[in-house]
Amino acid sequence: MSAIDTLFAQLRPSGRKAFMPFVTAGDPDLDFTAEVLRCLVAQGSSLCELGIPYSDPIADGPVIQASYTRALDKNLKLADVFAMLRGLAPDLAAPVVTMVSYAIIYRRGLETYVAQAQDAGVAGAIVPDLPVEEAGPLAAICRRRDFSLIQLITPTTPRERALRIAEETSGFIYYVSVTGITGERTELPRQLLDNVAWLRGRTSLPICIGFGVSRPEHVRMLAPVADGLIVGSAIVRRVAEAASRPRREVLAEIGDYAAELLGALSG
């Protein structure tokens, strides 16, 4: 069992849902990333998703793109991200997964990437540009090393294909709420509830919903059907303010925002 399997094994019997914030590594610097992760876990986050900045992120909206560009402009290296996590992981009471392009994993070497990530305390990877047909070689390594490879299902995924993806996934299924890129939305499609409910009857894996989730009303709408909710751009946008405002204040606001969504999740 990976740390993610253990997490959901603890949450599910009591009907609790996972709150899963997304943070970009190195924006504005890795010290602050570590502080934000500690703060989010202290508020009660179940799992943290750490975005590894990439030069060409085609699935990401303007907020996450810009955070990646800022981090890379400061010459952020993958080795520095892993070093930060190695220092942080022992006292972080929640698993960390990386959202990382296959361009980065391939360049590092599949086996090396997974080994280095595990050494840094990372529990799994979400690889947004690696569809199930191409995932074979990485999936084999992840299975052997008990490293979760979390795959995505979207509104455009045909149902028989969704089942195939579910078969190949470990940790949890990342259910993308909308046809589009990451970013806050005012409304989420109702159809989503039916799609998730359909999948629920056909897999025992936890199903977590992301893309566009940013408001307490989204959380209240989705919590009944999901095992967890992923909140990205809304947090990244708040973190970005640390470049121009006192970090204490920004951290407090991020904490308040997480607490508000966590309240909606358990209420």
Binding site: I58, A59, Y102, P128, D129, L130, P131, V132, E133, E134, Q151, L152, I153, T154, P155, T156, T157, P158, R161, I165, V176, T179, G180
Partner: peptide, 20 residues
């Protein structure tokens, strides 16, 4: 059928685009 020219090519895109 997988879009391979020898080892090259393939389809490394977000799931959203796969159906199209």
């Amino acid at each position: 059928a997988a879009g391979r020219f020898g080892p090259f090519g393939g389809r490394y895109v977000p799931e959203t685009l796969t159906r199209a």
